[in-house]
Design a binder for these strands. Structure first.
Lengths: 313, 313
DNA sequence: TACCGTAGCACAATCGATTGAGCAGATGAC
DNA sequence: GTCATCTGCTCAATCGATTGTGCTACGGTA
């Protein structure tokens, strides 16, 4: 049943008879026993902050499809951004002898990578760079630069006087946000603008935080900013109620961007420029790294995201 | 390490020494070996159509949290509504000796349930009723009735002349949609209205189908209907671009409902009445059924969904 | 006829845990 | 003093597959 009958010099006739008998009896090998003997399990593990987030659920989908295509069983654990839960989950997955581990959005990827190396388990860190491990990330810097440039173009067309847009959301301590901030600054510099620090409001990813930050900003300015970029779909969820209740004239004067994609954002009262991360590509690249002996640890692979323009632009 | 040291009359001192040594050596038992011996794996399987759908990803989240809380490892397989893939995935999960299986939105739940019974594996069908198996479903009928009644109330307030709303999306051959249609008809009957068949357009769940159906409907009527209920969030995704491009007056005359919830729908140009399925409750109930020997197969447990009113109503 | 090589299969060892059975020494009852 | 009981532990069997090794029959060659 292991598929090695030729190597073991079993005659084709016998192999056929065995296969026929197995089919007849609805027999299928116990995969735990097989895994025990072969020191591999056929399981592939994935660590994820949460499922309820379009970006992560797209990654989960791509992961599921990709692992099934390779004949493995996907084991996805949502760790709720809790470091302890992450550590426990890694231990669990390793205890099941997962053949490989894919880690998305962990709070301490370096520790996880060390643990995997100690257990000699292939692993890839997705969505954030990690020293000493293979990682696959979106090109946050260039993506945010393109988004910012697109928004600056719109501001120019609108003849807006106020130069740079504001950036709300994300955690500056995390590499993803840091890269996006670099991209933001770079795009402004290209346009001979300067991003004063007050324009960058990295208030975290929680909807409520973004909501509060946007309300405070509007109070400070006396109106909505002429350009606004929301860093992530969860932050957008918090900003949206505020934006959609602005007076018509005010929202018409505010060009909005979002670093993440949702089809719902294409149909709001106001246009939204979006960045769509290529989740299938991220996951395909991650799996390529897993079987490719070509990728030495410490490799960083970058996937370019996609700029999604509002309809008719 | 199995935790049975007391039953095996090991002295507490020795048990402590063993635990200390294990901690010291970073030892953790091989769960495949344990599973082999105990004829259980600590894995809980879940079958899901897809991750990229807020309803399903909420279920996945609840499943993940619930299984971790019980010390099991969640194995979620997205089968893309493909019957063959579903069958293969069930075989895979059974071959891994999953301790239990939760099936969401399968195309042939009865066949899956038979297979699980043959393998003597506890299982629960979620989101659709299944003869001869334990199933946990949303109360689609009452939910849709409440949604319809709420929309009728709004139509009354608006002084709309045209009686009943239209229902777009879903598959009338599936129990969930069938129940919702029953609820729709019942609410209309309560209001002394009759739902002519042309008002029920069960064109499937795909965004494009809903989009096409809505466009056709509007052409037929010469304008948007005064009341419109979209059956599921995916169908809404298709309807939204049409709705949001309607002239202001036209959309103002169209009261919209959706049988599903997304925070983005609370902030559109027009109000949306929504039904939110209680995913955590569905999953908690499913797990309760799994360990409760109280639930004989053939049990149907019903979870009431929640009516979400537009802001300020 | 003796020898060798090969095809095809049978048998036992192995993976790493859990668990049933048994054994030596201490304790207690009569 | 003898026997039964209990404590605490050791040892081997077991789960269900894969894999290493050996055995038999057969054909070919010298």
């Amino acid at each position: 049943m292991s598929g090695s009958w030729q190597a073991r010099r079993i005659s084709p006739a016998t192999a056929r008879r065995v296969a026929a008998a197995a089919a007849e009896l609805d027999y299928s090998p116990n995969l735990q026993a097989r895994g025990l003997r072969q020191a591999r399990s056929g399981l592939v593990g994935m660590l994820l902050p949460e499922h309820e987030n379009r970006y992560f659920s797209q990654l989960a989908q791509a992961f599921s499809v990709e692992s099934r295509a390779r004949g493995s069983l996907p084991a996805i654990v949502a760790t709720r951004r809790d470091p302890d839960e992450e550590a426990r989950s890694v231990e669990s997955l390793l205890a099941y002898s997962v053949d490989a581990l894919i880690v998305v959005g962990a709070s301490d990827p370096a520790a996880i990578s060390r643990r995997c190396r100690a257990a000699r388990r292939p692993h890839v860190i997705v969505d954030q760079p990690c020293d000493g491990a293979i990682s696959v990330v979106t090109d946050n810097e260039s993506g945010m630069a393109r988004l910012t440039t697109a928004l600056l173009g719109e501001l120019g067309r609108r003849g807006s006087s106020d130069g740079a847009p504001y950036l709300i959301g994300g955690d500056a301590a995390l590499p993803a946000t840091a890269a996006r901030i670099r991209g933001f600054r770079a795009a402004l510099a290209d346009a001979d603008l300067r991003a004063s620090d007050e324009r960058i409001i990295a208030c975290g990813y929680r909807p409520e935080a973004a909501r509060a930050a946007l309300i405070a900003l509007r109070e400070r300015l006396g109106r909505a900013p002429s350009g606004l970029i929301i860093n992530s779909i969860t932050a957008f969820e918090g900003a949206l109620p505020v934006l959609s209740q602005l007076p018509e004239a005010e929202i018409a004067g505010c060009a909005v961007g979002c670093f993440d994609y949702s089809p719902f954002l294409t149909c709001l009262r106001f246009p939204v420029w979006m960045i769509r991360q290529r989740t299938e590509e991220l996951m395909r690249t991650a799996f390529d790294c897993l079987d490719g002996a070509d990728a030495p640890s410490g490799t960083l692979r970058v996937v370019e995201p996609e700029l999604v323009l509002p309809k008719g632009r």
